[in-house]
Design a protein around this nucleic acid. Structure first.
Lengths: 150, 150
DNA sequence: TCATTTAGTTAGCATAGCTAACTATATTCG
DNA sequence: CGAATATAGTTAGCTATGCTAACTAAATGA
């Protein structure tokens, strides 16, 4: 009953923005997953690997934080990546911590996936006007900031 | 070798846009999943349910298409939703098809989740300037179109 | 030194993706 | 009309990814 009228707090269209963003994000991830599957490596592994490739080496806990998953989840993801020789574990001064690094093979695989993604997105972007494409570029910058703040 | 220099087709920054969008989408979904977990229903179920609530009744195959998953996957998702009394199956003239409808309970749960999401996003948006918030609203409109075109 | 804290792993469970193979209903065509 | 084909969903079985609880090992600190 009161559902549709929900204008109580903040902007009235906030809910619609949240819905659309959420839904679009889900579907974007699913679309690109189709191409990512060609890499033969799962989406969580690919995402974790990209943090190491573009963000540099870090510990398991830091990687888990970056990926917003719990340590046991990241532990298993890293094990899979290590088994596939895409990531290497290194000991650190602090005997509890490990340093995780992308291998050359891991970096290569990630770049190949990136190219497939660009290929897919390029078709979509080609259908947009120059203005919209520019706006999309701005928004691609904006979105990570928002995500960080949630 | 040719990886880094890849400027051959389209805009040079296309790859960066694709990366940021993809990464932001993944992380946005993960952030909001934390709140969605409070509903006690999985993300795939929630997403499928939202199609029925906001998009109206449809067949299992149509729902699978909308959600970009295979029929067996959707079959199981719907079974879970049905068991939880959030979705109802109805027979149609075509004996092979089923019509799927959100129940009142399903609709209620979805709106509650929507409110939690808004609550989370509202905090993030409150930290943004008016200009950025407006730009985000644009993105929320633009993104689904792009996703549809991929 | 010995208790506590911190980092990561192991075990076990649930959800969600997939393909292959099946059932049941509709449709098409000889 | 009746057999072959096509379409819609389900079932079975695999993998990947989330989680919590409980563990090991190393560092810290009182």
């Amino acid at each position: 009953m009161t559902l549709v009228k929900q204008k109580s707090e903040g902007s009235p269209e906030l809910a619609a923005i949240a819905d659309k963003l959420h839904s679009a994000a889900i579907h974007l991830v699913r679309r690109l997953r189709v191409r990512d599957r060609e890499s033969g490596i799962g989406p969580a592994q690919l995402s974790a690997l990209s943090v190491l490739v573009f963000g540099g080496p870090r510990s398991l806990g830091e990687l888990a934080d970056a990926e917003q998953v719990r340590p046991p989840t990241m532990s298993r993801i890293v094990s899979s990546l290590e088994r596939a020789r895409l990531v290497r574990r290194e000991a650190t001064e602090d005997g509890r911590r490990v340093r995780l690094l992308a291998t050359a093979k891991g970096t290569k695989i990630l770049w190949e996936g990136r190219q497939r993604r660009v290929e897919s997105l390029a078709n979509a972007l080609a259908l947009l006007g120059e203005t919209e494409r520019a706006r999309l570029a701005e928004l691609a910058e904006l979105l990570p900031e928002i995500v960080r703040k949630i």
